[in-house]
C-alpha cells in the first residue's frame, strides 16, 4: 500500500516539475509569438526620427522611448541612493556588528524587505501629503520621490547580499589581512571587499532588475501614461512596467494591444538579461566558496 502511494507521489512530483516548465515556456512562447514582430524602431520612437528622439530634440508620441528613459532614470537614481547605503550597511552587519546587533538590525532589514511595495508607495504618497500640510503646499509626486521609495524597496536585497558575500568568506582568508598587520578597515577594503565583489555585484544587478520592474510603488508616486521625457527630477514620468499595465487595461485597438506584447517582451529581455548576469556571477562566487561535507 505504501508502495502505491509512493508511486503516486513520484508521479505527482514529475507532473509538477513538467507542469512548471510548461508554464514558463508557454509564457515565453506566447509573448514572443505575439510581440516579436512589433519590436522595431517604430515601437520605440513612433514617427519621430530616432536620432532626434534620442538627443531629445523632438518629443516622441507613439513610441515607448519616454517610458524607456523614465525607467532608466528611475533605476539610475534609485541605485545611486540605495547602493552606497546598502553595501555600507551590509559591511557593517557582516564585519562590525556584534551578533546581538546583527540580529536586531537584521530584523529591521527583514521587516523592510517584507513591506509590500504598495505600502512603500503609500509611504511616498503620504510624505507628499505631509509636506503639503507643513512646509511646501505645492509638493507633487515625481521621479525623485519614486526613486527614493524604490531605493527603500531594493535596500534589503543590497544589504543582505553584501552581508552574505562578506560573511561567506572563509576564516582562513579573513585572517590573511590581520596577519599582515592590516587594520580592520584596511582588511575590509583590500581583502574582504575584493573577495566579496562578485557577490555584491550580483546583488546590485538583481536590485536593478527589481527596480526596473516594480509597478506598485511608482503607481502612487508619480508615474503617468503620457508625459514625455521628464524635464527634471521633480517631474512626472513614464515607465515600462506601467506602460504594460496600462495597455492591458486600456488598449483602444489591436495595434496598441500588439504594442503591449512587444513592451512586455522588451521588459522581459531587460530583466532576463540582468538576471542572467547576476546568476552567472553568483554561481561563480558560490563555487568558489562552496565547502561540501561528506561522510
Amino acid at each position: 500500500m505504501n508502495r502505491i502511494s509512493d508511486r503516486i507521489l513520484v508521479g505527482l512530483t514529475w507532473l509538477s516539475g513538467i507542469g512548471m516548465c510548461m508554464v514558463v515556456t508557454g509564457l515565453l512562447l506566447f509573448l514572443i509569438f505575439h510581440g516579436i514582430r512589433q519590436i522595431t524602431p517604430a515601437l520605440f520612437f513612433g514617427d519621430t526620427p530616432w536620432l532626434k528622439a534620442i538627443t531629445g530634440q523632438s518629443p516622441v508620441f507613439d513610441g515607448i522611448w519616454p517610458a524607456v528613459t523614465g525607467t532608466v532614470l528611475l533605476v539610475f537614481l534609485s541605485s545611486a541612493i540605495a547602493v552606497p547605503v546598502g553595501v555600507a550597511s551590509g559591511i557593517y552587519l557582516a564585519a562590525y556588528a556584534s551578533s546581538r546587533q546583527r540580529a536586531f538590525w537584521g530584523s529591521m532589514v527583514d521587516l523592510l524587505s517584507g513591506t509590500p511595495s504598495i505600502v512603500m508607495g503609500l509611504f511616498g504618497f503620504t510624505m507628499i501629503l505631509f509636506l503639503r500640510k507643513t512646509v511646501n503646499p505645492t509638493a507633487q509626486t515625481g521621479l525623485f520621490l519614486a526613486a527614493v521609495c524604490i531605493a527603500l524597496l531594493i535596500l534589503p536585497y543590497l544589504i543582505r547580499t553584501s552581508q552574505a558575500a562578506i560573511a561567506g568568506i572563509s576564516t582562513h582568508l579573513r585572517l590573511i589581512g590581520p596577519a599582515a598587520g592590516f587594520s580592520k578597515w584596511q582588511n575590509i577594503r583590500h581583502v574582504l571587499l575584493p573577495l566579496a565583489s562578485r557577490g555584491i555585484l550580483s546583488g546590485i544587478i538583481l536590485a536593478v532588475g527589481r527596480a526596473s520592474e516594480d509597478t506598485a510603488v511608482i503607481l502612487l508616486t508619480g508615474v503617468v501614461a503620457q508625459t514625455g521625457i521628464p524635464r527634471n527630477i521633480w517631474d512626472k514620468f513614464e515607465a515600462l512596467p506601467f506602460r504594460i499595465y496600462y495597455l492591458a487595461a486600456e488598449h483602444r485597438n489591436a495595434t496598441e494591444l500588439e504594442q503591449g506584447f512587444a513592451v512586455a517582451l522588451v521588459l522581459l529581455f531587460l530583466t532576463g538579461f540582468l538576471f542572467a548576469i547576476a546568476f552567472l556571477l553568483n554561481r561563480y562566487a558560490e563555487n568558489r566558496w562552496r565547502i561540501r561535507r561528506y561522510q
Partner: peptide, 26 residues
C-alpha cells in the same frame, strides 16, 4: 532535468509581475 527545473525556477523569480498579469489577462 533537475538542473533545467532549477534554472527555470530561478528565472521565474526574475519575470516581472506585470508580465504575469498581462499574459494572464489574455
Amino acid at each position: 532535468f533537475a538542473r533545467i527545473v532549477l534554472i527555470l525556477t530561478h528565472f521565474m523569480t526574475g519575470i516581472p509581475t506585470v508580465i504575469y498579469g498581462f499574459v494572464s489577462v489574455f
